[in-house]
Design a protein around this nucleic acid. Structure first.
Lengths: 231, 231
DNA sequence: TGTGGCAAGTTCACGCCGTCAACATTTGGA
DNA sequence: TCCAAATGTTGACGGCGTGAACTTGCCACA
């Protein structure tokens, strides 16, 4: 799974540009795009307002017509990144092996969600850490987490968290997951993929990519096994 | 589990102070202490060199006699924080319920390690995020992760990662964990507690602490169940 | 017992950052 | 047509990390 720049541009860039001076026409999106570029290279800390303005060819303070302050711009980048994460999960869901066994299908989808999450983290660490750092900035507990920020939805209109819950619902409906475990399972599954992403990005960064896939599969298996209804 | 400032001071502060001018006597530790204070309040990003110097009562550039640059000071704070994390895990291990059943004991110790990790993250989010961000800065794969940075060991001389591996060894030796799952189990367990910590800190920050404990226990149970040897 | 060198402080300066206030330019609607 | 709002610019401020050059005090050695 690779995320080309065009993939990201698709969702925000629009509107034809005229000449150059004064009225840009679509400055807000241009700023977000430039900021996304910086975030890809160095995570949220690399989003430097003056550099963003420089890349767009505009004065630094022009950004203040569209964002109250830098964190707001970073937030916008986090939304874009969250949406890209959701699309990564959706993509992996789309390439799920076909099967007639509904239990196997539910299991496959669960793993696909996890793989999409981890793969995005590995493919776009800068964007991943930007979305991941998003929650720490804004308040709002489970509720806001459920719905997603608003801009972080994938093509299906679902946030990463929604996609996870949907996969759990699948498992629930085919009797693989105990109803009383649903809540804890959502948290455990999210924690596992999120933590695994950080582990692979940080402590296991040197791992060859073949081994990496094995680690991902093994971890998803182990954790998934814990979620299954007790026999 | 609470971590008082004195707990943290214990390990770095030392050496009596003379008068004030020019030769401080123990400036390096004083700087680290002040930086720890800032990190506690606002995480690694809150460690501002000039403010650290201000708090110690020294000129900003004095720090450069002891650290090549700011990241090196942050690294030192991360070491202190990692050691505090290890001590939190050790403390929880120490208050493990006594039992004659070795399997139950291994299980309890495994859960204690996880609780110590998560509880530290909740009690000291600033220090936790400082250690957690540590690995992303320095290179070095699994090897360095195994050993720990050097300064991030607890009272027992073990790093957080060491403590986790030790708990897994306990489970292995009483036949609760399949030998071929050891590697994956370590990763899965770490990922789970790390991810859970972030979830509780970020998305579930609003959760009442009573519910929080329930979530922690439920998650550790679910994940732990997945590690167990198949019957 | 000097004394000289070196470690550990200081001051000053530079360029970068985010942000504010005041000003300039475009544009769209009465 | 014209004016008000929206959008961009300039200039300035304080704060940041850091480098260079200077100063102070301690200790090892003659």
């Amino acid at each position: 799974m690779k995320f080309t720049m065009s993939t990201l541009v698709l969702m925000t860039a629009s509107g034809a540009r005229g000449q150059q001076p004064y009225h840009h026409g679509d400055l807000r999106n241009a700023l977000v795009q430039a900021a996304v570029g910086l975030a890809r290279e160095g995570g949220p800390a690399a989003i430097v307002l003056r550099e963003v303005a420089r890349r767009v060819g505009v004065s630094p303070t022009a950004a203040y017509r569209h964002f109250n302050a830098l964190p707001e711009l970073i937030e916008a980048v986090a939304d874009v990144s969250g949406a890209a994460l959701a699309r990564s999960m959706e993509a992996e869901l789309g390439s799920c092996p076909q099967t007639d066994d509904p239990r196997q299908a539910a299991w496959d989808r669960m793993r696909a969600v996890g793989r999409g999450y981890v793969h995005f983290a590995l493919a776009e660490p800068g964007l991943f850490t930007t979305t991941a750092s998003r929650e720490r900035r804004s308040a709002g507990g489970v509720g806001s987490a459920r719905g997603g920020g608003g801009g972080e939805r994938g093509a299906s209109g679902l946030s990463p968290w929604d996609l996870l819950e949907q996969a759990l619902d699948d498992m629930l409906s085919v009797g693989m997951l105990a109803a009383e475990d649903r809540e804890a399972a959502a948290i455990a599954a999210w924690a596992a993929v999120h933590g695994l992403s950080y582990l692979l990005l940080d402590k296991l960064a040197a791992l060859p990519s073949a081994e990496r896939e094995a680690v991902i599969d093994a971890t998803l298996d182990l954790v998934g096994r814990g979620l299954l209804v007790r026999d």
